[in-house]
Design a binder for these strands. Sequence first.
RNA 1: GGAGAGUUGGCAGAGUGGUCGAAUGCGGCAGUCUUGAAAACUGUUGAGGGUCACACCUCCAGGGGUUCGAAUCCCUUACUCUCCGCCA
Length: 423
Amino acid sequence: MLQVAFIRDHKEAIIERLAKRNIDATEMINDVINLDEDRRALQTKLDNTKAESNTLSKEIGNLFKSGEAQKATILKEKTTQLKETTKLLEQEFNEKVEALNELLYRIPNVPNPIVPSGNTDEDNEETYREGDIPTLHEGALPHWELAKKYDIIDFELGNKITGAGFPVYKGKGARLQRALIAYFLDKNTEAGYTEYQLPHLVNEASGFGTGQLPDKEGQMYHVTADNLYLIPTAEVPATNIFRDTLLNEADLPITITGYTPCFRREAGSYGAHVRGLNRLHQFDKVEILRVEHPDNSYDALDGMVEHVKNILVELKLPYRILRLCGGDLGFTAALTYDFEVFSTAQNRWLEISSISNFETFQANRLKLRFKNNDGKNELCHTLNGSSLALPRVLAGILENYQTENGIKIPEVLVPYTGFDMIS
RNA sequence: GGAGAGUUGGCAGAGUGGUCGAAUGCGGCAGUCUUGAAAACUGUUGAGGGUCACACCUCCAGGGGUUCGAAUCCCUUACUCUCCGCCA
């Protein structure tokens, strides 16, 4: 969420930049400012009332000590009145705070000035493209056909055990999954990220911390008996490491990588675009996350993009990078780069990574701060991205590496798989 | 699952219903000494709101209550630890 003080000081600029998201925030921003003014006025009233009762209480204490019980009793009556007033003011105050917070939860992050204008994914700006799109042999198949042909992924079996969107990986398919996870983790670790194994279920407070709750509740699986949520991404447990945390400036940057399965209900998804590995309820992902000094966060973002580029170059997959337009930008992000791999047999691009700078938007809600060198507490910047999401990378490998004799394994993965061909 | 004990500042750890936003230690910061560093010594150092700045207000796990007054008493929820039970 945005900081009220920031909104107060940069009202016009915020409205202007939020317009990139195709929303007119004028009313919301004005409401925030008005609610905040009301809140402050109430706070002053409330504080003064409390100050008065505090003074009286001390007097009463002293009177009792000096044995002037009668005088004390008179003062007691006064405090009862003040207490009533306090209660009423408190109620009013809490209502204002709640209204203000609810409003703040609904205002998305302010896009970085370089975010392109636009409404849909068609308006995203391609900033980079690399890798040759292979010419496939006659009769080349989409990945779900290949998975069946070589018996490496069983979608129907998943239907039986759980339901649609929970595939079963078998034999070399399972081994390839494990190889990809290990390879990604190794690459991230080499780049300086510390590997973490994180819980796959989180509590309510963590859901709020990263903004899945309250509005995106329907997208997570909820374990009602224990009131826990299955993580939709490692971002949730990894970011919540830093909930209510005060760091030292010297601690920054903090860099974390972790593999987790991800669980998403994806309610309402259907059609050809969700076939095979394109969209699943359970999938694997290796995530990278950084907590940065505000001065460094955009350099760090560029660094993350370079890092993922290197991996895709090593895998020799054709990919492109998009700078998301205002309409496609996630609620919490200030700037996002998406990576897409070309799925040759489907003749379409598949998103495999999304790397974002959230600036202070997450940190504000998390209360993630650092003590700067002047001794003041300042909000950190947070960034995260996939490095990488497995299913669509796998789809890209299966389709782009298929030959008439089977599916070749990218060279860098062979040490991890122990085989160089699926046939 | 049963019984008991706990949860206090960045960390560790005291705390009698009013003198407690809270001893002490560590850590951090500044200084003295030193060519420099370490050590030692001295000083300083919780967070949030509010204010031009003060004043002032709030915060001792979360929520509620008793009281003129609560870190302290009561209720409740969550979590941690110990013992027992169960168990990969």
